[in-house]
Design a protein around this nucleic acid. Structure first.
Lengths: 336, 336
DNA sequence: CTGTTAGCGCATTCAA
DNA sequence: TTGAATGCGCTAACAG
């Protein structure tokens, strides 16, 4: 029968015949304790199956060995990859991860960050939807914090992918294929990376020979599929989707309507999620190193936690991966 | 400037002109406190931005409002969906989720479960890879616990998908299409659901006119792709993959070898992950309600936590979704 | 090197 | 109804 109540530090002290502070020291490998005694204490602890209560330690030490990660949507492959990279790295450093999914509820984001921060040592905000003003107000009160996929924030390390540069590269790719009218499926959700994309598009359209048709869409597969008709009737010969999910939804929907990709319509996405390489045709996209972003976000947090020098903001430039979903313009679609 | 140190219960007591125990009572809506006084206390707390330290509360109350979830691989879409369902449901009940990814390291599984359990109120083991003996030894020491995707355990609620039944149905489907020689890509990882699949296959092969070729593979996309040659040379006209990931890898690899699916080879998977419907051709699979499994696992844990009646083990029977990756036998592949 | 004492911040006895 | 005292389990001063 397992003991119904776990052994406490006093039980170990009693068994080893020492004071409870000696047990504490021994268990924490404090060098000021006699080696022989330390062994005796550890043997007693092992015999009893004792391990210090982490909650009690947290209270007295003021740290929980846990960080909070707040994500807009656990169903998004990009965030999943970020979480995975983060979780693995934190685990390797002996830290635990408390995870929260805001389900894209912007108004609950701040509250979740604040609440979870109190039971952890720091919080990592993954692609927060909060407007800049709200973010600026929130961050100082929850330090240490790390922000993913937002522009550099005052006094807070940031790790992000440069969606603006990626957009520019993707546009250059499409232009080189002869596309002059491009549909842009913008995510309706307020996201910093979305703004960066729009800015890059604005730049390209003012300074170039290419025009854009913005089609408000969402951030998931279904919203991409729902935009199919709008894209088709837009007269665009190519579509730049908010992300791979949207691109795949669009690809799937236009295919069932008999539109050939890339002969009739070129489609490109962002992120390079796991299945982007296996759609039919395989998707051209800007590869965002999500796993690495998660890993680096942890590294920044770890530096903050261990008093290391504050990590500079890291920025990854996505690499455009050209696959078969984009091709040369054949017949410009008729203007509607 | 934000205060560098958060207000404590004493600060509120001082501001409200009451004792600290009255503050505690008021903040916890203890009915024995005078309503007017309670309002005054809460006003003071609001003014100071006070909220009780959750770590201190955890220590004194003996509960953390957090549960631990241990998963074999955060990159697996099925586990992601389970986690999502679990996380959403727990959050709705005011609980937090501590998440651990064992990275398929069986030997670290027990340690992770034990460790994380100590800083939480319970642990949910998602498809643990531990052998039954190890699981039986572990579970009593970490109660309350809930196990996902394992056969019913003594004194521990279980929620699982019936992979055996799903396998039987999938085989029946393939038989009805005329397939008599079927390759089974077994996951090399020790998993209970894998055993269930094998048992169903053994049953079918002993009692029927269909034979199976077991091809050891892994549990991910790449291992499915790596099995392509083995499947082709096996002479099978259909392949049952360990899961959709493996099926998609196989589908992709045989396609590049010029094998047509389903004309030359039928392929079926398990799980119905988000992209299974969008492969080319769309994948026939046994749909496992992962999100619901996660949700129900939480419900079982919540019942345990709130002293409700112990939830009976729940079992979901996956529904076979017939799509285009399976079709009638045309030319039995040549025996090698 | 080891034992004694004092909190960490709070909920909850026990008196009043 | 409220305040004073006790302790959750542990670490870290402080003595010895």
């Amino acid at each position: 029968m397992a003991r119904s109540t776990r052994p406490g530090i006093i039980d170990v002290a009693r068994l080893a015949g020492v004071s409870l502070s000696t047990v504490s020291r021994a268990m924490n490998d404090n060098p000021t304790v006699d080696p022989a005694l330390a062994d005796r204490v550890k043997a007693a602890a092992a015999e009893l199956g004792y391990a210090a209560n982490p909650v009690a330690r947290s209270l007295v030490l003021g740290r929980t060995q846990t960080v909070s990660v707040v994500i807009p949507d656990l169903a998004n492959p990009t965030f999943q990859a970020i979480l995975r990279g983060l979780s693995r790295a934190a685990s390797a450093d002996g830290y635990h991860v408390l995870i929260s999914d805001t389900a894209e509820q912007v108004d609950e984001e701040a509250a979740l960050v604040t609440t979870t921060r109190r039971r952890t040592d720091g919080v990592i905000l993954c692609a927060p939807r909060l407007p800049q003003s709200g973010l600026s107000a929130l961050l100082p009160s929850v330090a240490p914090a790390v922000v993913i996929n937002r522009p550099p924030q005052a006094d807070v390390p940031t790790v992000a992918a440069d969606y603006g540069a990626a957009t520019t590269e993707l546009i250059a790719h499409l232009r080189s294929l002869g596309h002059r009218r491009i549909a842009f499926l913008s995510g309706v959700v307020a996201s910093a990376s979305g703004e960066a994309r729009k800015r890059a598009i604005a730049d390209a359209s003012t300074s170039g020979d290419v025009e854009f048709v913005e089609i408000p869409a969402g951030v998931d597969f279904d919203s991409g599929a729902a935009s199919a008709d709008a894209v088709i009737s837009s007269g665009a010969t190519a579509a730049l989707a908010f992300n791979d999910l949207v691109a795949m939804g669009l690809l799937s929907a236009v295919s069932t309507r008999g539109i050939r990709v890339p002969e009739d319509l070129s489609i490109a996405g962002f992120d390079d999620i796991p299945f982007a390489a296996y759609t039919t045709p395989p998707l051209t996209t800007a590869a965002v190193p999500s796993f690495e972003i998660g890993r680096d976000a942890w590294a920044a947090m770890h530096a903050l936690l261990t008093g290391g020098e504050p990590t500079a903001s890291a920025i990854f430039t996505p690499e455009v991966v050209i696959r078969a979903s984009t091709g040369p313009v054949r017949n410009p679609a008729p203007q509607v």
